[in-house]
Amino acid sequence: MNFFKYILIILFFFFSSISISSEKNINLELKIFKNLRCLICQGQSIYDSQSDFAESMKLVVRQKLELGMSENEIYSFLEDQYGEWILYDPKFNNKTYFLWILPFLMFLFGALLILRKLGVFKK
């Protein structure tokens, strides 16, 4: 099992060189555009939409970024104006517990069924 030990050691060095939260924000602006839903063409993000509203919204986001507002500050500003609907990324709050958790429950439930089929619960 020496071999695995080496692998583990190398793996360790590997991951220590990777910063976990190094989401690079070169294109923060585009990321924000893609996460805002257009109120005029309601099926699209303002990134995909060319409506007047979307164009103005892009300018507003750009302006706020230049003023040094963070991504979340921009979201909460717009959410105050237009409601949570405008954000494509639903927040984790009492409205969305089910949304976020239900898929995981399904996954766990599936695991149980599979373990049963593999005979794990049989004595």
Binding site: E55, S56, V60, Q81, Y82
Partner: peptide, 9 residues
């Protein structure tokens, strides 16, 4: 450019 209107909501 529509910025004011967006600021107003």
């Amino acid at each position: 450019n529509g910025i004011v209107s967006i600021e107003l909501g």
